[in-house]
Amino acid sequence: MSKVERLGKLIGRWFTLLVVLWAAFNYAVPQASLWLVPNISYLLGIILFGMGLTLKIDDFERIAKKPLPVIAGTVAHYVIMPTLAWVLCLIFQLKGATAAGVILVGSCPSGTSSSVMAYLSGGDVALDVSIETLSTLLAPVALPGLLLLFAGKYIDIPTASLFLSTVKIVLFPIILGVVLHSIFGKKIEKVTHTLPLVSQVAILMIVGAVIAANHDNLFTAATALVIPVVILHNLSGYGLGYLFSKMIQLHDPQRKAITFEVGMQDSSLGATLAIKYFVPAAAIPSTIFSIWHNISGSILASYWRTKSSSEPKSVKTNFSKA
């Protein structure tokens, strides 16, 4: 095992704590990451390019061979999380950019850290990765459409620009990664062991940039309700995701995968689009979500692992994102 791979595994083990500490540091010293704010989209592109490099044509064939659980999980994700975000905005009477930010993170595709949580909990990692892939590929259409539906009354939604940006930020890096993997095969696989470290560093840089950009507005009366809203959003997503998977009579490992796929969001994408198209305050829900869902996901995965006697199914996952 190389030094880079060992470092990636070490950081992965303590990643949640590192995110919290790095966020606190950038709140205390915002100048440290302000220079990164204009480059957030490039950092996210690096993460998604790494995701593409880990995908093979076999991954898409797996979706085609067993589409029903994948489609069900993806539909559940894009129905439950945006609707929950909208309902919570109504209940807590959130307005403007703050409400739009909550709905934005709720409309994002699922986060790849869910695959780690599914693995740790003994869930169906192959199903998790398949849902994650499909939800990400659908993001250019789903995200602007859901924002227009649920957040249009809070803020102007540049639907066409969001679509084009999501294609550029999300689809292009993933497709490029898949193409390179298909062309170079095992030569690419030799470097994929470095991807966890690259992704983790990029995530930390995004978190730092968003904290720095929102330093003056992070803890104000206007955003005081964001933390409980984000926590309720994430936990309710887990609960409804699990109930949905139970209702359609999936097996326990599949229930775990769908629970994480529904409740965990690609908050890095949410923060990136908020900074680019709205005001910095709209990125606050995504930033808090990024920190919180890693904490809650780790706790839930640990609980399920201790309750289950089955071993986690091993599927190769070489990327991680908040």
Rank of each mutant, 00 (worst) to 15 (best):
A126I: 13
D128K: 06
S130K: 08
E132L: 15
E132K: 03
T133G: 04
T133N: 06
L134I: 10
L134R: 01
S135A: 14
T136D: 00
T136R: 02
L137E: 00
L138K: 03
L138Q: 03
P140S: 07
V141N: 10
V141G: 10
V141S: 13
L143V: 10
L143N: 07
P144G: 07
G145T: 15
L146C: 05
L147E: 06
L147I: 04
L148T: 15
L148D: 13
L148W: 15
L148Y: 15
L149V: 13
L149N: 08
L149W: 14
L149A: 12
F150H: 14
A151F: 10
A151Q: 08
A151L: 07
G152P: 07
K153M: 07
Y154C: 10
I155P: 05
I155N: 11
D156S: 13
D156G: 12
P158Y: 09
T159N: 10
T159W: 09
A160E: 14
A160Y: 13
S161A: 15
L162S: 00
L162F: 00
F163E: 06
F163W: 09
S165N: 11
S165T: 10
T166P: 02
V167E: 05
I169W: 00
I169T: 04
I169R: 00
V170S: 06
V170Y: 03
L171C: 11
L171H: 05
L171Q: 10
F172I: 15
I174D: 00
I175V: 15
L176W: 07
G177T: 06
G177R: 06
L180N: 05
H181G: 04
S182F: 08
S182R: 09
I183V: 14
I183Y: 02
F184P: 05
F184V: 04
G185H: 05
G185E: 13
G185T: 05
G185D: 09
K186D: 11
K187L: 03
I188R: 07
E189T: 00
K190H: 06
K190F: 04
V191L: 09
H193M: 02
P196M: 02
P196A: 02
A202Y: 00
L204T: 00
M205Q: 03
I206G: 09
V207K: 01
V207H: 02
A209F: 08
V210K: 01
I211C: 05
A212H: 04
A213V: 04
A213L: 10
N214V: 06
H215R: 15
H215I: 06
D216V: 08
L218K: 01
F219L: 15
F219H: 08
T220D: 14
T220C: 12
A221C: 07
A221M: 13
A221R: 13
A222D: 12
A224L: 13
L225D: 14
V226H: 02
V226E: 11
I227E: 08
V229H: 09
V230C: 14
V230L: 11
H233C: 09
N234L: 05
N234Y: 02
S236K: 06
S236V: 14
S236L: 15
G237E: 10
